[in-house]
């Protein structure tokens, strides 16, 4: 549901692994690389800690986009965690797309601790994408609201 309202602000939840992406976000911060304030980061030890349930809950509660950031393939602090995350999210995102939560509202991105620039660029492009898609109401609608 795209909106014409310039002032509409999406709610974006970003899950970042402690070792790479959270540190990448810190580096983006200390390098003053701006991205929209709509992005709120939740720290998890590893991208594999992100249960699909968390993402469904975010959409249910009104998130307009959810992004999961982890270490690059092969660089996971726990060796294999990001591979599990990748498989789970591939499955989840295709299911969400089927449910009507467009592909553009979900993303997995690998950001290392040294990639402050990439973190900022990723968030900018992701927020931009979600803005074009407008508010996500699909999962909220599925639930009975009082």
């Amino acid at each position: 549901m795209p909106v014409n309202n310039e002032n509409w602000k999406p709610t974006i939840v970003a899950f970042c692994c402690n070792w790479c992406s959270y540190a990448g976000a810190d580096l983006a911060g200390s390098s003053r690389l701006a991205y929209p304030a709509d992005v709120k980061i939740i720290k998890v030890p590893c991208s594999c800690r992100v249960n699909p349930m968390f993402i469904l809950r975010a959409f249910e509660k009104g998130a307009d986009g959810v992004i999961l950031c982890g270490c690059h393939p092969g660089d996971c602090h726990y060796s294999t965690g990001n591979y599990y995350a990748r498989r789970r999210m591939t499955l989840l995102f295709s299911m969400l797309d089927y449910l009507g939560i467009e592909e553009g509202r979900t993303r997995v991105e690998w950001v290392s601790a040294a990639e402050g620039v990439k973190f900022s660029e990723t968030m900018n492009s992701f927020v931009e994408k979600v803005r074009t898609l407008g508010p996500s109401v699909r999962l909220g609608d599925l639930r009975c609201k009082n």
């Binding site: 709610t11 939840v13 709120k40 939740i42 998890v44 030890p45 800690r49 249960n51 349930m53 968390f54 809950r57 975010a58 509660k61 009104g62 998130a63």
Partner: peptide, 19 residues
């Protein structure tokens, strides 16, 4: 479940951000 990053803790954060 993971102590310090439990399901309930992370869901609570999600809820707080999306409320």
């Amino acid at each position: 479940d993971l102590q310090g990053f439990s399901n309930r803790q992370i869901l609570a954060e999600v809820d707080a951000i999306c409320r």
